[in-house]
Nucleic acid binder design. Structure first.
Lengths: 191, 191
DNA sequence: CTATAGTTTCAGTAATTACTGAAACTTCAC
DNA sequence: GTGAAGTTTCAGTAATTACTGAAACTATAG
């Protein structure tokens, strides 16, 4: 691998973590390489830098494309495809969250919905359904909330996160604040 | 498998999803079984219900214990160990999030911190470090926020989630609200 | 202490997943 | 069209991970 020690560590680490994140080592390393690379790279360069076979790189890139985690572009007077990781880390975060939700949550939600429609055959089924309902409701709420929050402007989100749990202070206040419908917001102490 | 079709579907689904969640099929199924089961089960019963070898169950339970996802208990006049999934789905959610953070995020954060301490050898390293900084900051902020939010009372959290993006309305207001230090909250329009 | 019920470990094997290199396919300049 | 450059597919193989059954270990009742 013809990379600086700094990048190399980063790339290798992502390879290792890949397995914990449900992507394979190759894919993790390719992504890491693109992430720290200042310029887009073509498949040949990637294969060379990481010492993978050309076809392995091709499959890895395909995988990354399916995750919407790389951008494909062409350089003038060059037929080869160049790949890069999106610059905006927030966008990456969002993409990752979306994709994981699609793969890891949605199928479960839909299975749960089906299960909850079924008529319980006995007491055990009734209990099982109760548990499934709890699980369904929690997942439903958490994901839809996450979904909402996720699409806030990065700046707003940042502000929100920086507040941390202080946001609950606002919640406590909520009851005392009256928001007048119709665009204009008036603040006053109720009661 | 001697389970009702309802539970069986649930258990099999968790087995399948297991692989996407970084746990294996066996472990996923064991967990699902415990989750929908009204009473704690011993290893024998689990092996029997899921048609796994006794030792496979033993290893699966060990794995689940390491994730803090099952409770071990003893029944009176019975030497066998009985296992159950915690009843509170919020607690499960929290545990899961904690464990995943430990395994999937923390190592990366620490690697990034190390990398950021290194002296860049050239321009490429400088660029790489810039990218790593962005990633580090984002992960740091997101996880510590998540951490905070996660430990709120379930009720508060629920309330927060139900509000969805409306929370930003409160944010907009924030500037106009003055919180007086010292316990008592006074509300007034600033400027 | 011994017998027995219960649990864990581990070496061997099965199943799955990742990777390679050769061949097929695609695209484009000429 | 032809050929060269680039990309993808895929069958075979390597590497990894999951699973089993037998043996070792542990705890307890008597």
């Amino acid at each position: 691998m013809n990379l600086s020690p700094l990048s190399q560590d980063f790339v290798l680490h992502f390879g290792e973590m890949g397995s914990r994140w449900g992507i394979n080592r190759t894919v993790g390393q390719i992504y890491a390489l693109l992430f720290v690379s200042a310029k887009p790279l073509n498949a040949e360069e990637i294969a060379d830098a990481l010492q993978f076979s050309r076809s392995n790189v091709s499959m890895g890139l395909k995988e990354l494309e399916s995750w919407h985690l790389v951008r494909l572009q062409h350089l003038p007077n060059d037929r080869r495809e160049y790949f890069s990781a999106p610059e905006d880390v927030w966008a990456i975060f969002r993409t990752l969250a979306d994709e994981r939700r699609k793969r890891e949550i949605d199928p479960t939600l839909s299975m749960l919905r089906d299960a909850l429609l079924a008529t319980p055959a006995n007491d055990e089924d009734k209990f099982a359904q109760k548990r499934m309902t709890e699980m369904h409701n929690l997942i439903e709420m958490a994901t839809s909330w996450f979904n909402d929050v996720q699409r806030l402007e990065p700046e707003t989100l940042k502000q929100l996160m920086k507040m941390g749990t202080k946001v609950t202070k606002l919640l406590e206040m909520k009851d005392k604040i009256k928001v007048v419908a119709g665009g204009k917001t008036s603040i006053g102490v109720s009661r």
